[in-house]
Design a protein around this nucleic acid. Structure first.
Length: 562
RNA sequence: UGGGGAGUAGUGUAACGGCAGCACGGCAGAUUCUGGAUCUGCUUGUAGGGGUUCAAAUCCUCUCUCCCCAGCCA
């Protein structure tokens, strides 16, 4: 007997499973599967399905298989198999020894096809693709029966065997199920179950030149693996009668297909076809570009698998088509990284600050807390000296309303260091501010004022002499609008691509504790956001991807003021 | 005009004849050595009409809107 996790939200699929468990429909077993086609990289929409299938298995003490749905040799490649496995594993799921391939069942599919022929339920059809389309009818008109529909079992058997033997060219014949050409459900109008494809398969090589179609292969694969609940997306809803038809005609163990709505995310796209346009059009730098909603892109961006799993849980599962606000994904990663990311000081757009009354060659080591959310993460030393960098927009010569950072005559705190007061502004010939001169109060060492006076802002900073050089890649939403379809007449999603989705800052300054950062390390740059070291990092120049900004009340206020 | 689905706050998702809840967002406030985090409060919803019932998001009925299907793709 399983005890469902009370903390995990329920959904209609779990309700069905609980019911099946009660009625012992599947013998108290729960067995799901995640069946990607290895023809591209996984994205966050797949993550929803992975979390659903593996999550349900775990919750009900069941099993979940990983299965490559590789029935079309012209589209699939071994490279994708590896990336899919890596992504599922990274997401935190384990299929143990149950790594399967539909192509492992090719022999079995063939036998099933022969059985259907013998039962008079399948026939070899010589219609060309074009003819078949005409015979199929339309959404509102019934189809016509193929002239080859009533061949004898013997002739069908012979023809099908010769299809397999390679006697015929691609597209010249198909094997079709004999169902009902007048069905309102077009999937039931004698669907093709085998096609001729003289193509090299990534696993079976040239052993086969006929390949089964999805509808035929999928239900039998599920059956072979003794799947109980075959969970798929909504567009397969009207394939279910066909799923059931094959299994009934073949008299096989019969899993239950259940459909749910795929994930849509605001401000981005979620289709392989569009990803390709992005990559090939040069809008992004590859499938794992940190702007892509692919698993590999999110990983490179700095997302954790915990955050993605948590996201998958929060969005729920239903049959209604919907678009989840990307703000929820961002919330999930902030929530996770807030607890685990060490804090560090980094200045992205440096503005030089000189402390006039600080001794010329002096350096102090000040204590800084690594993570105020987790005292166990300890403290570190940060060097302080006379010349520092602060963030350009932490200074305003003429402070706008509501701005309480540094400006002439005003005192602020340098985090973990001292109170400083701006006494002068240095500009170049063009009037651009090149340096701010300040004085400090030695009594405020560590950041507290003995006299109890308050300061309205605390700024992050980096000692110029000790700073590390770095590059920061700031990412923003891929699309300017929530909905990729919200475009002008005749335009597509490419017309609303956010041209500012990547901003590269090359003159960043980091505190020296970051010297040994490795690719993939995540930090919170205080007051700025969460950043993840990119694999492009060089020895003398670290490169960081901004995973997500911190929530920024000030930015909101400024935006409203405009 | 064929077949299959779906309509609950701005967004997503619960409630399965019995108080419409939760999360994100938004808006206030408290607090703070991150304008972060945390805490508190507020905001807004059952597509529409009729019916059954003591009681309807839930059952019946009519209507409206949206999505999917005419690959030898999955």
């Amino acid at each position: 007997m399983t005890t469902p996790d009370l903390t995990a939200p329920s959904n209609f699929i779990k309700t069905i499973i609980e019911e099946d468990l009660k009625t012992k429909k599947y013998d108290n077993r729960v067995h799901t599967r995640f069946p990607p086609e290895p023809n591209g990289y996984l994205h966050i929409g797949h993550a929803k399905s992975i979390c659903l299938n593996f999550g349900i298995a775990k919750e009900f003490n069941g099993l979940c298989n990983l299965r490559m749905d590789d029935t079309n040799p012209t589209k699939e490649e071994a490279e994708y198999v590896e990336s899919i496995k890596a992504d599922v594993r990274w997401l935190g799921f384990d299929w143990q020894e149950r790594m399967y391939y539909a192509s492992d069942y090719f022999g079995r599919f063939y036998e099933c096809a022969v059985e259907l022929i013998k039962k008079g339920r399948a026939y070899v059809c010589d219609l060309t693709p074009d003819e078949m389309r005409h015979y199929r009818g339309t959404l509102t008109e019934p189809g016509k029966e193929s002239p080859f529909r009533n061949r004898s079992v013997e002739e069908n058997l012979d023809l099908f065997e010769r299809m397999r033997a390679g006697d015929f060219s691609d597209g010249s014949r198909t094997l079709r199920a004999k169902i009902d050409m007048s069905s309102g459900n077009i999937n039931m109008r004698d669907p093709v179950i085998y096609r001729i494809l003289h193509a090299e398969h990534h696993r079976t090589g040239d052993k086969w030149c006929i390949y089964p179609m999805y509808d035929f292969a999928h239900c039998i694969s599920d059956s072979i693996e003794r799947i109980t609940h075959s969970i798929c997306t909504l567009e397969f809803e009207d394939h279910r009668p066909l799923y059931d038809w094959f299994l009934n005609e073949l008299n096989l163990y019969h899993p239950q297909q259940i459909e749910f709505a795929r994930l849509n995310l605001s401000h981005t796209i979620m289709s392989k076809r569009k990803f390709i346009q992005l990559v090939e059009g040069g809008y992004v730098l590859g499938w794992d570009d940190p702007r892509m909603p692919t698993i590999s892109g999110l990983r490179r961006r700095g997302y954790t698998s915990e955050a993605i799993r948590n996201f998958a849980e929060r969005i729920g599962v239903a049959k209604r088509e919907s678009t989840v606000d990307i703000a929820l994904l961002e919330h999930c990663i902030r929530e996770d990284l807030n607890k685990r990311a060490p804090r560090v000081m980094a200045v992205l757009r440096p503005l030089k600050v000189t402390i006039d009354n600080y001794p010329e060659d002096n350096t102090e080591e000040l204590d800084a807390i690594n993570n105020p959310e987790d005292p166990d993460m300890g403290t570190r030393k940060v060097p302080f000296s006379r010349v520092l960098y602060i963030e350009e927009d932490d200074f305003q010569e003429e402070p706008q309303k509501g701005f309480f950072r540094l400006s002439p005559g005003r005192e602020v705190r340098l985090r973990y260091a001292y109170f400083i007061k701006c006494v002068n502004v240095v500009k170049d010939d063009s009037g651009k501010i090149t340096e701010v001169r300040c004085t400090y109060d030695p009594a405020t060492r560590g950041g507290d004022s003995p006299d109890g006076r308050k300061v309205k802002a605390t700024l992050h900073w980096v000692s110029a002499r000790h700073a590390l050089d770095a590059e920061a890649r700031l990412y923003d939403h891929l699309l300017l609008k929530e909905d990729a379809n919200d475009v002008a007449e005749g335009q597509d999603f490419k017309s609303i691509i956010n041209s500012g989705s990547l901003e590269i800052l090359t003159a960043c300054k980091l505190e020296p504790s970051l010297a040994n950062t490795k690719a993939g390390d995540r930090y919170q740059f205080e007051r700025l956001g969460y950043f993840c070291a990119d694999r492009d990092s060089l020895k003398d120049k670290l490169i960081f991807n901004r995973t997500v900004t911190l929530k920024d009340t000030w930015a909101k206020v400024q935006k409203k003021g405009q």
